[in-house]
């Protein structure tokens, strides 16, 4: 077992990244009812067949079906879907050029991660309601996926969250007015909103700077650490494992041939799986209450 893991860690970056992309496609079940069965079948086939990940037809079909999803649901707001289609296309191009595959996925992985985080940071800076904290106030009070986290760290109760949701619903296109507060008057909640707003922006800007920094520079050498820090902190709270796994697959494509970094990325894949399957904030809320 140890020897098998050791051998796997020394495989080509294209093989490792392709494997992790295929596993994340199986775990995440992307696409709509037309494309999902095909994406699942092709991914499973690629993993089951010997050297299936090297087959250009596999990556061509995955590029087609992941792109089909974007085109069929155009204009799609889910940025993960665009990145997945682009990454499948990169793997297809790499599979067509086996001699340059490692370079193709390495360079593209690094630049695309950098651009994704740069554009996400610019979008936050330009947004009308991000920097003033409105976005996270709204998110923490209306998105049920974050309610355990909000209760745990924002010193608000589930009742206060549901009351805020009720009040917001009553305001929709009506002359409704009340003197009740929608936003709970909790210092911890406001602190949570402020920290989330600035951490999210600074963390993503840092990843962008590290991945787009000149090769060999100090920031460039810290890029894997910055991406891992982003994934560990973000996916503990945001339940969007598919994007995390895709970033790990891309990270593995561009990292140096360094066993420790590869182990760290692979561990991160399973940490995100753990976050996704084990609802740690729910367990903590139940434990405390």
């Amino acid at each position: 077992m140890v020897k098998a893991i050791h051998n796997y860690l020394h495989k080509d970056a294209f093989e490792i990244s392709a494997h992790f992309t295929l596993v994340s496609l199986l775990f995440n079940q992307v696409g709509n009812s037309f494309s999902r069965p095909f994406i699942l079948c092709i991914s499973a086939l690629a993993l089951l067949l010997a050297n299936g990940f090297k087959q250009r037809l596999i990556w061509l079909m995955l590029t087609f079906f992941t792109s089909f999803r974007v085109i069929h649901e155009w204009p799609m707001a889910d940025n993960h879907a665009y990145l997945l289609a682009l990454w499948c296309l990169t793997l297809f191009i790499a599979s067509c050029n086996p001699a340059k595959a490692r370079m193709i996925i390495g360079d593209n992985g690094r630049v695309v991660i950098g651009l994704v985080f740069l554009l996400a940071s610019v979008q936050k800076l330009m947004s009308a309601d991000y920097l003033d904290g409105t976005f996270f106030q709204y998110l923490f009070l209306t998105d049920n996926r974050f309610e355990d986290f909000t209760v745990l760290f924002g010193n608000v109760s589930f009742q206060q969250i549901y009351q805020a949701q009720d009040l917001l619903n009553q305001y929709q296109f009506s002359s409704f007015s009340t003197d009740k507060n929608i936003v709970p008057s909790s210092l911890e909640f406001h602190l949570l909103v402020t920290i989330s707003t600035w951490w999210n922006l600074i963390d993503q800007l840092a990843v962008a700077c590290c991945f787009l920094a000149p090769v060999g520079s100090y920031l460039h050498r810290k890029r894997d650490f910055s991406l891992m820090l982003f994934c560990i902190t973000t996916y503990a709270v945001a339940p969007v494992a598919g994007f995390g796994w895709l970033l790990v697959s891309m990270g593995l494509a561009q990292c140096e041939h360094n066993t420790k970094i590869r182990i760290a990325y692979m561990s991160l894949f399973f940490i995100i799986l753990f976050y996704y399957e084990v609802h740690i904030w729910r367990i903590l809320v139940d434990f405390i209450h």
Partner: peptide, 15 residues
């Protein structure tokens, strides 16, 4: 990635 409240569910179509 998370950045604005102005997305699909916050928009309304009235006929």
């Amino acid at each position: 990635m998370f950045s604005t409240t102005d997305y699909g569910p916050s928009r309304y179509i009235m006929v």
